[in-house]
Design a protein around this nucleic acid. Structure first.
Lengths: 141, 141
DNA sequence: TATTGTTATACTCTATAACTATA
DNA sequence: TATAGTTATAGAGTATAACAATA
């Protein structure tokens, strides 16, 4: 099957690599019932208890409404709480529930295994190079 | 904002980089009305006229039903045709329409500009290294 | 029996626009 | 005026399961 110019396109290679990582994640961590994006949210809120949805949306580069949807799913799943902000009555302070913290504890070792297995084709140095180039590309600083 | 362990995860950096590329694509090529995934399909079909949906799904690593949805959108948009296969009456032979070919001609230079601009943070050599590592990670041969 | 394509159903992610409550 | 959050609406992408037609 001829892929034409696709292999020369960074965007295509990124999509393919991410698709592969997602499928590996689903097969190896999916039984815990969360997606990679939801894991990101849980980690961020765990590291910044009380953060607002607007601050989180800005940090993750998505719209407030989009983030609200994802937060809503995690609230419905019992992993997150929206508490009233002590300083701004428009705002919600996001916190992990006890269940959310327990889930995160179970997730972390599973995710490390998944990462190692999914990137087994690359050496430790190559993985490090790849992370560095991706971070520069994303402008995540 | 503390990102916790996220920056150490390849999956997170991939998601962020892809999100950035997607947003840049949408802003710079989106006026032509196609998504990156649809471009991939148009390029593949342009390079392999008459290919079947099943063969395409396998090459792209998605389910037949999922690919059928995307093909259906491009057919509805007038960019693709499903013709009867000359050798297997179960199968469709996919072809670009004249409009699809014209669209692809307009897309290619725009995509090259988009790729260059979106990856401006990286040197030519770094972009090449990144493509190579991503291809290895994706197992795309 | 196996494969090709379709349909039905469902879920995640994402966005824009309009709304409210509050700052 | 501007911001935080929600809701309504929409579209893309993905998947599984069941089905008809064909191999």
């Amino acid at each position: 099957m001829d892929r034409g110019i696709l292999p020369t396109l960074l965007g295509y290679q990124l999509r393919r690599a991410q698709q592969r990582m997602f499928q590996h994640f689903a097969a190896s961590v999916g039984d815990l019932g969360v997606t990679p994006g939801q894991v990101g949210l849980l980690v961020m809120i765990g590291a910044n208890p009380g953060v607002s949805q607007a601050a989180l949306a800005k940090a993750l580069g998505v719209e407030r409404a989009s983030l609200g949807e994802t937060v809503g799913r995690l609230v419905a799943g019992g992993h997150l709480q929206r508490r009233p902000s002590p300083v701004d009555r428009r705002s919600h302070a996001l916190h992990l529930t006890a269940g959310g913290e327990a889930l995160l504890e179970r997730l972390l070792p599973r995710i490390r295994e998944h990462e190692t297995a999914a990137a087994a084709r690359l050496s430790a140095q190559e993985r490090s190079t790849l992370r560095r180039l991706l971070r520069r590309l994303a402008g995540d600083e």
